[in-house]
Amino acid sequence: MTNELFEVKTGLAEMLKGGVIMDVTTPEQAKIAEQAGAVAVMALERIPADIRRDGGIARASDPKMIKEIQRAVSIPVMAKCRIGHFAEAQILEALEIDYIDESEVLTPADEANHIWKHDFKTPFVCGATNLAEALRRIGEGAALIRTKGEPGTGNIVEAVRHMRTINTEMANLSTMRTDELMAAAKKMGAPFHLVVQVAKTGKLPVPNFSAGGIATPADASLMMQLGAETIFVGSGIFKSENSEAMAKAIVQAATFYDKPDKLAEISEGLGKAMKGLDMVEIKPEDRMQDRGW
């Protein structure tokens, strides 16, 4: 019997497929998320929209708050640590968090290095803006990749860019001759063995989810039609007018993402989605997606 194996880490991600993972800041919100059909919750002190508004250093959450959320729900509980902050990750592992998100939403702790995730029994999810970044994170041990998007904006444009970029780059690799792959790996700055694997299979070696800017059922459908297998919703639920209705609707949209008639029904009368931010309103130094590499 062993539990270090990678398949056990990706196995949980397989079970989350076709679902919605929701950011929650209190046990009450966690219960609302579970009752709406979330497959997991992400426990954090402030949702990305508020982190963006408040400024300051955003760190891993208080263990007390994480434990309260773990007690409130029966579904998996994820939590975020800062990029490169392996001590925060160790604490989250000690709390028996189900998945650790090494996240650009928090202020990075290391500008050069990400966490060596193979050292942990707890699986990690990491954000990516392109294929090379995704493969570097998988090389370090991430068992799940999500688009970064631009967190806390309610604006889907960056998540779309990241998903399309990853898809195009995977398609390009799969058309290459074997003798071209070493040069491709060098140019991309990605681990060679993973480049070879993507070229062979045409897909990421781990599940591929989407996060960053999803605010409506249609956004969820869009990302899933572009290839996302599950949706993370951060600010989109608890910054909307009617959180419970929005949560339920996005859960249904993740199942019926390819049925426009059904999506029309699901989208009806949900109240206002979160207000959101245009990318031109965000100063370059405030872009969270540029954190990490």
Binding site: M1, V8, S74, E96, T122, P123
Partner: peptide
């Protein structure tokens, strides 16, 4: 009994 072995850290293969 749901999650009877514990959380993800107790997941395993055999």
């Amino acid at each position: 009994e749901r999650n009877a072995y514990g959380r993800q850290i107790e997941s395993f293969s055999t």
